[in-house]
Design a protein around this nucleic acid. Structure first.
Lengths: 170, 170
DNA sequence: ACGGCCGTACATACTTGGTATACATATTGA
DNA sequence: TCAATATGTATACCAAGTATGTACGGCCGT
């Protein structure tokens, strides 16, 4: 997923500059997420190129000048369109583990069941980590909980699929 | 996921040229997947740059010459390492629907429950499509079934999460 | 026969998403 | 005082993926 719409969304509540957008993203919008500052500026450039935002140079009280970005009408329309429309639900063809299993079946000397077993173990460990993080988030911030709940559900579904693979390929 | 390891995997059973790799990928390895031919050649270039494959110019019987790629020992080692090691299980921070909900909660005039409801409907439709595709694949090819089973499990997990969001945010 | 389309085959330009790093100044704290 | 940290922007670079260009040959219909 790209960060375009996150920026448009943050700008909907008023103009901000790049550094500020990143801080707000990390500290408020997606608290578990990190955002590379370089990506913020290149994304802002592209959004401006496409007419979604425009910037104004502002000389700060500290002497540093900032580029403060604001949504254009076009940008606001794009944001509304994005929010109102459904998100793509990719089928995850090109799934790495599926590919690994498929290749293992076509190579001599590699047992696909071993591959499945190793992936299962890794998935379990990950689930354990995430479950602990989920417990720590409990009651702190509802959105942090939701994001971790999603991760848990996804990992459980994947484990179920691995079991299913093992059975069907045996 | 990148296509690097798919190509290494296909080359493990003997040398092939670019066009052939793409055909084999689409017709045998991941039958539901499409592979852009341009990506095959650029990936082969990078694999060669990194010493994983090497090529030989072969003049075909038809007069067209091909570049036939083969795994090097280094490439075979990389393939084995990849198969033996676990795949990354990304937490899917930057999930688009989560972002949409989070932004909706921060903007006036947008009801996050509406967002959830719309995503649910889209997800249901997708699930319906995939379920039909799954029924068509039944008994035809076990790997096609597995890939579609994964898609179904994923979509069901996501629907469950949307219900969960609705409840927690109400 | 020939003109168009399709299959085979490779190459390149371009876009996007993402990381790392460089650069500059102000504040803060040991 | 001097080093680390915070604020702020910019750029280079890389990988993944898409679209397009360029050949050549075979097949098919009129």
């Amino acid at each position: 997923m790209s960060i375009r719409h996150a920026i448009l969304g943050l700008l909907a509540n008023g103009p901000r500059h790049g550094y500020d957008l990143r801080a707000t993203y990390q500290d408020d919008l997606v608290r578990a997420g990190k955002l590379n500052i370089g990506q913020v500026y290149t994304t802002l450039d592209r959004l401006e190129r496409d007419g979604f935002v425009e910037h104004e140079r502002v000389v700060g009280a500290e002497g540093r000048d900032k580029k403060v970005y604001a949504l254009t009408a076009h940008g606001r329309a794009e944001l509304d369109r994005w929010i109102a429309g459904p998100s793509p639900m990719p089928l995850d063809l090109r799934n790495e583990v599926f590919l690994k299993i498929a290749i293992a079946r076509r190579i001599e000397g590699v047992d696909p069941q071993d591959v499945i077993e190793r992936e299962r173990r890794a998935c379990f460990e990950r689930l354990h980590e995430v479950t602990q993080a989920r417990a720590r988030a409990q009651g702190v911030a509802v959105e942090d909980e939701l994001l971790l709940d999603l991760a848990v559900l996804r990992l459980k579904a994947f484990l179920k699929w691995l079991d299913h693979c093992e059975e069907k390929l045996s």
